[in-house]
Design a protein around this nucleic acid. Structure first.
Length: 782
DNA sequence: TACAAGCGCCTTTTT
DNA sequence: GGCGCTTGTA
């Protein structure tokens, strides 16, 4: 511990009472917490199972446990309580399910499950899903729960809309019947238990831990805070670590005022500030400080570094997202040739939708990469089907899961039958499985429907019996066989079914992995344990230690660090992202903090790119550089490239605006602080055009529905090279041999021949299918 | 009842 | 661009 600086040493040694650590980016926070726990164990002889450390992701938890294990040994490391808020609460709830009105086999509903519940309620209650959009309903329910309010007890929506109140109540009722909890319930249930002065479970929990520690405390919400406060009420040994500058989850209910107000709740708290950054070069630190300095309120603190200036931060202007991607790919390529480790390279973007073009460029340059988050493995249909079977076997009352698989694979139970079953369940407020059992008992359905339902019911029972004697992975294999799911895919010998089979194999693999790993954390090997783990994985948890560049959103990057970082899409509207009500100054502050987080991830080199135009969500938008770029200190930065004028003629911010060619679109209000006239000539044009909202030049004006042919890479002359112009008068498409295309069924292919005629047709070759003649409009051109 | 195609919708960040 | 739902047809 001799390598610690003074504030770090104080934080480690502080052994009782509340402690608030403001830990700046790169200030050795993880090391400090780890040593602190090791110190509690070794010097103060605290029992490991009486220490709770809450981390932000499972990955962080894993790393912390790993580090501690290497210091204090495996046996002690295993007994420590280290996990995320949700993971920890799930674990506590597994022990005290009765106090929460659940059975031991309760399951966790994710967003998709929640949505399914609301949709079913809208159907049952005969409500309009436009007026009561599931997303909106769920956001109200979630907001209430994060305020500690259970919608089944306290009416939702300020007592105005009866239907909303009803939806809130019924939603909770369905979850209860399903023996399920959603993410917010997980926390709320534990809060109720731990704040209950009389219940035995609450009394037990309040005595359970000698020390409670919370990392990333700036991103906790009120319920989470109340939980840890209650858990540490008797000892007041609550140590919280965070950085208000890195608070980026306000939209999820996190409240930065909690960390700022901590000393009010705990007046005797000791405050430690870790302000020396050990991670980044001086140039990167000063770039970060430049951006964060303009936030409206910050806890006073001074991040500094003793590191040398290092390379300047490169700010690169490019024409569009393709040029951006090829810049990123080529600079990565170059550093790879200079021996850079791809593990320590990362590309960040504000939203997932930006990743596709980057991926393509990397693939084209043969650079190995991994994507963190985005379309997740566990969201694929076949994987969800199997998880539904597993969950249904664990917890037959889960209606959402029963609905999902009752006719998967197709077993002749159609919409009419299901609808009738739903009605039967609703009449007696039963879960579907109970309704089904009752209906079978007194033959409510006609001969054939009855038979099919019976065989489905029997199938589930068989599988439940099988569960007792099989490991989770074996059980999944059994499901794949017995439901006929696998043989169906095998029969359908297409590229798509092959991919699905592969995914299922991977799912079996993931179960096996669980079986192998569960003992490490002292976990009992159960199906419920696996399902819980699946429900609570975060995007970054899937990050592998492979020799590959990582691509992720800035949110996912929190807590990570890389030698080289490419921060893409630094334009107005992209970053800061133009939200639905983009005028909220608090939201702009949060975007600023998000940019700060992004910049401070870089150790040695930071490349920032911004494009003059970006094709996103099916539209080209013309964009000016992000205001955050104006806040970078010039001496730390090297500006490169420019946006060529052609790209900036259209001007104007254009969520659909530019294609109308109108000048009437006002700049968003929060843009008014932006001053045109930057240092780079390329910017001037863009920002002036944008600020003035000039009328688009006539020759480039587009009618609605029209768009230009996508350029071939590095060429403006696709028109000239074209062998054939497939055009329906509204959307010109250019096709020529060698062009890559995609078909819904055949997948990716290459055009061999183009045929003219009344309907434009091409002959394309698809791997695995051979050549096919296809009407052009059924193809996607890449 | 099952499947395929078409249409209309939305489009941040995630435990 | 992509998805989920609805519609139309075998």
């Amino acid at each position: 511990m001799t390598d610690l600086n003074e504030p770090q040493r104080i934080a480690v040694a502080h052994e009782s009472g509340p402690l608030l650590i403001f830990a700046g980016a790169g200030s050795g926070k993880t090391r400090t917490i780890t040593y602190r726990i090791a110190n509690l164990l070794a010097t103060h002889r605290i029992a490991p199972y009486r220490i709770l450390a809450v981390t932000f992701t499972n990955k962080a938890a894993q790393e912390m446990r790993h580090r501690l294990t290497s210091i204090v040994g495996e046996e002690i490391g295993r007994d420590l309580w280290i996990g995320t808020f949700h993971g920890t609460c799930a674990k506590l709830l597994r022990r005290h399910y009765e106090a929460a009105g659940l059975t031991s086999s309760f399951i966790i509903y994710d967003d998709a499950d929640q949505k399914a519940v609301v949709n079913r309620l809208l159907r049952d209650l005969g409500l309009d899903d436009k007026q009561y959009a599931p997303k909106y309903v769920l956001s109200l329910i979630g907001a209430a729960k994060r305020d500690g309010i259970d919608p089944s007890e306290t009416p939702l929506g300020d007592g105005f809309d009866r239907n909303l109140v009803k939806l809130g109540e019924e939603y909770q009722a369905v979850l209860k019947r399903s023996n399920a909890v959603d993410f917010d319930d997980l926390l709320l249930r534990v809060l109720r238990i731990v704040e209950d002065p009389d219940g035995p479970a609450g009394r037990e929990l309040r005595r359970k831990f000698d020390h409670v520690m919370v990392d990333e405390f700036q991103d906790t919400n009120m319920v989470q805070y109340r939980i840890v406060r209650a858990l540490s009420a008797s000892t007041r040994n609550l140590c919280v670590v965070g950085d208000d500058d890195q608070s980026i989850y306000r939209w999820r209910g996190a409240d930065v005022r909690i960390i700022r107000g901590f000393r009010t709740d705990f007046p005797e708290t000791r405050i430690v500030k870790l302000e020396q950054n050990y991670r980044s070069t001086a140039n990167i630190v000063s770039a970060a400080l430049g951006v964060i300095a303009r936030t409206s309120y910050r806890e006073p603190k001074e991040l500094w570094t003793a590191e040398p200036a290092g390379e300047p931060v490169v700010v690169r202007a490019v024409n569009d997202e393709r040029a951006e991607a090829s810049f990123v790919a080529s600079t990565i390529q170059r550093s790879r040739q200079n021996g850079a480790d791809p593990r320590s390279q990362a590309i960040f973007y504000r939203i997932h939708a930006q990743s596709r073009v980057l991926e393509e460029a990397l693939r084209g340059a043969a650079i190995p990469y991994q994507i963190i988050g985005g379309m997740k493995f566990f969201e694929r249909a076949e994987v969800k089907d199997m998880l539904s079977y597993l969950r249904l076997i664990e917890n037959p009352q889960s209606d959402t899961d029963l609905m999902r698989v009752i006719n998967v694979p197709a077993r002749g139970i159609g919409g009419k039958t299901v609808s009738r079953l739903l009605d039967l369940a609703a009449e007696n407020t039963n879960s579907l499985i109970v309704a089904l059992e009752m209906a079978l008992a007194d033959s409510q359905f006609s001969g054939s429907a009855n038979k099919k339902l019976k065989s489905f019911f029997d199938l589930l029972n068989d599988l439940r019996v099988a569960k007792e004697s099989l490991t989770p992975a074996e059980l999944l294999e059994r499901i794949l066989e017995q439901t006929g799911y696998r043989s169906l895919l095998e029969k359908d010998d297409t590229a798509e079914s092959d991919a699905r089979l592969e995914n299922l194999a991977e799912l079996v693999g993931s179960l096996r992995e669980y079986e192998a790993e569960a003992p490490d954390t002292g976990e009992a090997l159960t199906l419920a344990g696996y399902l819980e783990r699946v429900a609570l994985v975060a995007a970054v948890d899937t990050m592998e230690d492979a020799p590959a560049v990582s691509l992720m959103t800035v949110h996912s990057a929190k807590g990570l660090e890389f030698d080289q970082v490419w921060l893409t899409g630094m334009e107005e509207e992209t970053f800061p992202y133009r939200g639905l009500d983009g005028e909220d100054p608090e939201e702009l502050d949060e975007e600023r903090r998000l940019a700060y987080v992004a910049i401070t991830r870089a150790r040695k080199q930071l490349f920032i790119t911004h494009a003059g135009a970006r094709f996103l969500f099916g539209r080209t938008k013309y964009l000016s550089p992000s205001r955050f770029l104006d806040d970078l200190p010039p001496e730390a930065v090297r500006r490169e490239g420019e946006v060529t004028p052609r790209q900036s003629y259209l001007g104007g911010s254009s969520w659909g605006g530019a294609s109308r060619g109108s000048s009437g679109r006002a700049s968003p209000a929060w843009r008014s602080g932006y001053t045109p006239g930057g240092r780079n000539p390329g910017w001037d044009q863009t920002s002036q055009a944008s600020a003035g909202g000039r009328v688009a030049q006539a020759s480039l004006q587009l009618e609605p529905g029209e768009r230009f042919v996508e350029r071939e890479e590095g060429s403006d002359e696709a028109h000239v090279d074209a062998d054939f112009d497939v055009s329906d008068g509204r959307e010109p498409i250019v096709v020529r041999p060698g062009q890559k295309v995609r078909h819904k069924k055949f997948g990716r292919g290459i055009v061999e021949r183009v045929e003219s005629g009344t309907t434009p047709t091409v002959v394309a070759r698809f791997p695995g299918y051979g050549p096919k003649r296809i009407v052009a409009e059924f193809l996607e051109f890449e």
